[in-house]
Write a protein that binds this DNA or RNA. Structure first.
Length: 360
DNA sequence: GAGACGTGGCC
DNA sequence: TGGCCAAGTCT
């Protein structure tokens, strides 16, 4: 381990080298200000940061375009209808982010006059804004010096200093090292430069060390396997679960949709009525009827379990409504219902089967 | 601190 | 093909 003075001196060199590289190679992303332009607003920075949590740039692109076109300001977003916003988020995943997004926009309008707080501490108090996002917005939108640590930065820093303590135990050491190389000026550009480096060169697999601007300062590149950093604790195997979903269609071409509870999996989203996720192979349907079962269950993988959803269909009379809260949704507009991917796939499977039947 | 929480792409 | 991974947060 080097003494702290050397580390700080190296930090200045590392930051300067990375920023010089960034000035030439920065990715052009919709939520970034163009080079030479005024800073993009805090609203767009915050919106992009929330969308990018655990989500790839490619996946975020169309959602960011859709949201900023429909809700161009934090005031307009705060005034959005809850169901509309959840439907617009459908497919992007981690739906607690959408509920917190709305709560955050409303807090900014109600408590801060429509202006985002410009400090990490102020930002950190907002719903859905954790340590990473608070630091990123403070640095990128407000030019504050903040130590921005995401998975990219963890990987880059772990390699730069060959930190071999496994994650998550290595977090304090990684954060201290990130702090040591974060410059006082251009902290926002530095953060984005670190994330660009992690996304394009210092990648998880097959890092492109040969073209890395930090190669000369990197401890890992002098080891047999730079990609071995950061070291991670072994993960548990993912359990499998079985569940049932029910497609209830009314004469006239409407299907019964429910809204899932705010807490828990797919919280707050429109959905088909369904069992819990550990149901008996022959779980009871919501009511007695002539149920038909699709031959192939819908296979879906969540973060912490995989699911086989068996889908059952039936038809009911015009005046019949299932018990409990729900709404009849036009089948031909099912794509606009804002179903999360699991249920969108279930609907697809039902409609495909109907289509096949109609051909016979 | 560890588990819950989505989805799609990659090898 | 199944596991890993992606600009994390909340409890």
């Amino acid at each position: 381990m080097r003494v702290e003075g050397d580390m700080v001196k190296d930090g200045v060199k590392i930051a300067a080298g990375l920023l010089a590289h960034y000035d030439v190679h920065a990715r052009r992303l919709p939520w970034r200000a163009l080079p030479g332009a005024n800073a993009t607003g805090a609203y767009r920075v915050w919106l992009s940061e929330v969308m990018l949590q655990q989500t790839t740039v490619a996946a975020v692109g169309p959602y960011f375009a859709k949201f900023t076109a429909r809700w161009p300001s934090v005031e307009s977003l705060a005034a959005a209808d809850d169901a509309d916003l959840m439907a617009a988020w459908a497919g992007l995943g981690y739906y607690a982010r959408a509920r917190n997004l709305l709560a955050c926009a409303r807090a900014v309008v109600r408590d801060h006059g429509g202006h985002f707080p410009d400090t990490e501490e102020g930002l950190r108090a907002l719903p859905g804004v954790g340590a990473y996002t608070a630091a990123a917005v403070a640095a990128i939108a407000f030019g504050r010096r903040a130590v921005v640590v995401d998975a990219n930065v963890e990987r880059v820093v772990a390699r730069l200093f060959a930190i071999d303590t496994p994650l998550p135990a290595a977090r304090p050491a990684i954060r201290a090292a990130a702090d040591a190389i974060t410059p006082d000026a251009r902290a926002g550009d530095f953060a984005q430069a670190m994330m660009d480096l992690g996304a394009t060169i210092c990648t998880s697999r097959n890092p492109a060390c040969g073209i890395c601007p930090l190669r000369d300062d990197c401890a890992a590149v002098r080891t047999a396997d730079p990609a071995a950093y950061p070291v991670k604790a072994a993960k548990k195997t993912r359990p499998h679960r079985n569940g049932h979903g029910w497609w209830i269609e009314r004469a006239g071409g409407h299907v019964w949709l429910v809204r899932r509870p705010d807490k828990g999996l797919l919280g707050g989203m429109r959905a088909l009525p369904s069992s819990d996720w550990s149901a008996d192979p022959d779980a009871a349907p919501p009511f007695a009827a002539d149920w038909r079962t699709l031959a192939d269950p819908v296979a879906h993988v969540f973060t912490h379990f995989s699911l086989a959803l068996t889908v059952h269909t039936t038809h009911v009379e015009q005046d019949h409504a299932p018990s409990g809260a729900g709404e009849w949704w036009p089948v031909e507009r099912i794509a606009d219902a804002g179903l999360p991917t699991l249920f969108a796939r279930a609907a697809q499977a039902v409609l495909k089967e109907k289509d096949a039947d109609a051909r016979h």
